[in-house]
């Protein structure tokens, strides 16, 4: 198994966190992982992204130019990464917040209304977790239980009360792409 993914969106939407959580979960499942954030001018305003690679074997380059999956939380990200998805790959986008959705016919397009779903949960911040749920349901890179374990590791104890909400968000996301 090798999954080369890019997570992209506005700063503050939690794109770096999505990739990082995937990394922590990968380590728990004893996989090889690499997480490469944009830390340059992007981080100082505008669109942020990170590359997350999860694999059963050693990972060569942490920097790649085409992806198995692109997880795009805003319009500029779709424009930037739709054509960098490998043929047969996946693009996930926030269909409740996009004017021009992806159009390619040689990749799988997952329209996920994550902003809307997050508002229904009364917490707009969990939109990244909803999207991450959709991502793992399709790619099967890590199990949901492992993501929750990763959350326990990453979150300080005083925030552990938020784990059930995150679990709910991940499950909603999984449901969005389940046919």
């Amino acid at each position: 198994m090798l999954q080369e993914a890019i997570f992209s969106g506005f700063g503050g939407q939690g794109v770096l966190t999505m990739g990082m959580l995937l990394g922590y979960a990968g380590v728990i499942e004893d996989k090889e992982v690499t997480w490469m954030p944009s830390y340059g001018p992007e981080m100082r305003g505008g669109t942020a992204n990170c590359i997350a690679i999860v694999s059963d074997s050693l990972i060569s380059s942490p920097i790649i130019s085409t992806f198995d999956s692109a997880v795009t939380l805003n319009q500029p990200s779709i424009e930037k990464f739709e054509y960098k998805v490998k043929v047969g790959g996946n693009i996930f986008y926030d269909s409740s917040n996009t004017i021009n959705p992806p159009t390619r016919e040689d990749i799988n397009i997952y329209a996920c209304p994550v902003s809307e779903e997050a508002i229904k949960l009364r917490n707009s911040k969990v939109l990244n977790m909803i999207m991450l749920g959709a991502f793992i349901e399709v790619t099967k890179v890590v199990k949901m239980e492992t993501l929750l374990k990763a959350l326990e590791q990453v979150l300080p104890e005083r925030y552990h009360k938020l784990i059930p909400l995150n679990k709910q968000a991940i499950e909603i996301g999984m449901g969005l792409v389940r046919k």
């Binding site: 990082m20 990394g23 990968g26 380590v27 996989k31 090889e32 992982v33 690499t34 997480w35 490469m36 954030p37 830390y39 990972i59 942490p62 920097i63």
Partner: peptide, 10 residues
């Protein structure tokens, strides 16, 4: 280099 400093790995 900056990438090795900033990236996360197992």
């Amino acid at each position: 280099d900056g990438a090795i400093g900033q990236m996360m790995e197992k």
